[in-house]
Design a protein around this nucleic acid. Structure first.
Lengths: 328, 328
DNA sequence: CTGAAAGCGCTTACAG
DNA sequence: CTGAAAGCGCTTACAG
């Protein structure tokens, strides 16, 4: 019966066509529906991938949140690979988020896990690795003495491309501002910008403290002091804050200041937007897909390392950057 | 061991504190985690809530999608109620989405389910109900001959409030435009607008076909023919399309036309936006929370009906509507 | 308080 | 080709 209903053609068991039909007919009449839990138990795997986020919710309240795009890719690929997704929400009511918070490794409900979030606890990841639990980290994550597989966007390249663009436009006094907690990916942004800058001897890059985005005058002073003609924003949040303050300062973009952001989501644009930012386009949805692929591969090869991957980025030129026209 | 790990204080079995600690310690050391499928099989529940979407993905690619806000609330409440969330992605690769598509009811892996999406198959919902599977529908869903519990935003009230606002400003020739597939909630919008309009004898409401949003001239003609001075958009998509076309037509908002939308997400606004739409604020995240509460209640009371709920809405006045100043 | 046993609904070798 | 049996990992009466 099991062979017939699951259409196991590769089974060693041969069933006559007549019997087969008889079984199917009976199943229909009885309104039979298999119990997936029992199937899983018998087959020893449950086609479940856990999603764990150290940072916030799986559904970020802030839609500008970079994780959102990852999620889209993760779900898309999960459909293809025929896995269900398990959002770990039990026991996540209090900070800090923890995998072992309740004492047991909750991820083991699933065959493997995708983990994300900046505030991740290195020791928990080490323990997971030691236990041989298969997971892939979403976003770059380097832990000394512990090789973990991750997949993320190449923020260093983002920094390089943005900086090169502004340098090519003739700007020599650049500013860089990132908001948010210090993380591998913030450091990569800064590193990329610095690397690109070093190719042009006369150029200067000022890293502005994120506090200057709390007050228009603070930003104005910082820009003036350093003669900044082009500002690189680390992401959408800094771009949003900066544009607001620049408006207060009556500074016009790009006439008074060129603006370029290392992350942006074009889906946000409205027809009546005057500004179309120059930005670095990421493919975080592809990163999400790749993460699932890597994890599934890991599961198949019983926990071999699959290696980390960085996804390339590209510059999209909008109307917020323009060539420098001599001294201000 | 089972009694200790599941913290069954009400169990007839008494366990000494010492033994209890010994068990917990051992579980930790061994990295023990219960198998949800086995738990499901043995006790018929596993603290898992399934999420099934007839329409699209759980993570809508379009961030303007109304489901997104629901998701936020669902997750928030799941944390509180101590449930994990199971995103049903298996077998969802091809249209139309189906719960029984593979022959088995995938939802049975979880204790209960939250179901959403306009394209839902009434017969599947009927079958679920007949089987006694506990679920709550996200968004209004009425099926003849089948009482189902749902929770959704009150789009009729949205229509009423928007229409009343425009009438109060003196407008008498209103237009209404909704895009997307016909659904209970689209019908409610229209119903609400019509109801409000009937209170003012001299007023007229023209329902524009969604095709007029495909072409600027078509929209222009429709507005002119009906002398429309105020346009109600059904949601973000129609608002977006309309603003784009109005710009092409050199019609200015709100001087030439007042604009009000029945759904909007203020989180989208940028500092440099000139237009702040007058809109109806929904509380879909609260609806999501409520849905989880209702479902959990259902689970507790072993599938009693809990009744459907509609969440109230409110008008937020922006700068896209203004009083009518005599004939145009 | 502890241990052995039955059973949840399936799948899959294993005998007939 | 068919039927009886073991086992997946749990929970829960049931004896000791």
């Amino acid at each position: 019966v099991s062979v017939v209903l699951n259409d196991r053609r590769d089974s060693p068991i041969q069933v006559s066509e007549e019997t087969r039909q008889r079984i199917i007919k009976a199943a229909k009449e009885l309104g039979y529906a298999p119990n997936p839990a029992a199937q899983m138990l018998a087959q020893g795997k449950n086609q479940l991938l856990a999603l764990f986020n150290y940072g916030e919710n799986a559904f970020p309240v802030d839609r500008d949140h970079p994780f959102y795009a990852y999620m889209i890719g993760i779900e898309r690929e999960a459909v293809r690979e025929d896995y269900n997704l398990l959002l770990i929400t039990r026991g996540q009511g209090s900070e800090p988020r923890s995998i072992y918070g309740t004492g047991i490794n909750m991820l083991r409900l699933a065959d493997g896990a995708l983990i994300m979030g900046w505030r991740s606890d290195g020791s928990e990841l080490k323990r997971l690795t030691a236990e041989g639990y298969p997971f892939v980290y979403i976003g770059k994550r380097e832990i000394p003495g512990c090789q973990i597989d991750w997949v993320g966007s190449d923020y260093r390249e983002a920094g390089i491309k943005a900086t090169n663009h502004l340098l090519a436009l003739g700007h020599r006094h650049l500013g860089l501002i990132c908001v948010g907690p210090d993380s591998e990916e913030i450091r990569d942004r800064k590193r990329g910008c610095r690397e690109a800058l070093q190719q042009v001897p006369a150029a200067e890059l000022t890293e502005l403290a994120q506090e200057v985005l709390e007050d228009a005058d603070a930003l104005g002073n910082a820009l003036a002091e350093n003669q900044i003609t082009a500002l690189i924003c680390g992401g959408v949040t800094s771009l949003r804050l900066a544009t607001g303050l620049l408006q207060e300062l009556f500074l016009s973009v790009p006439d008074d200041l060129s603006l370029c952001t290392l992350a942006f989501d074009e889906g946000r644009l409205w027809p009546f937007h005057a500004l179309h930012p120059t930005y670095i386009r990421h493919q975080d949805d592809l990163a999400g897909e790749l993460a699932v692929q890597m994890l599934v591969k890991k599961l198949g090869e019983s926990q071999a390392r699959v290696g980390s991957k960085q996804i390339g980025v590209e510059l999209v030129v909008g109307n917020t950057t323009k060539p420098l026209e001599g001294p201000r």
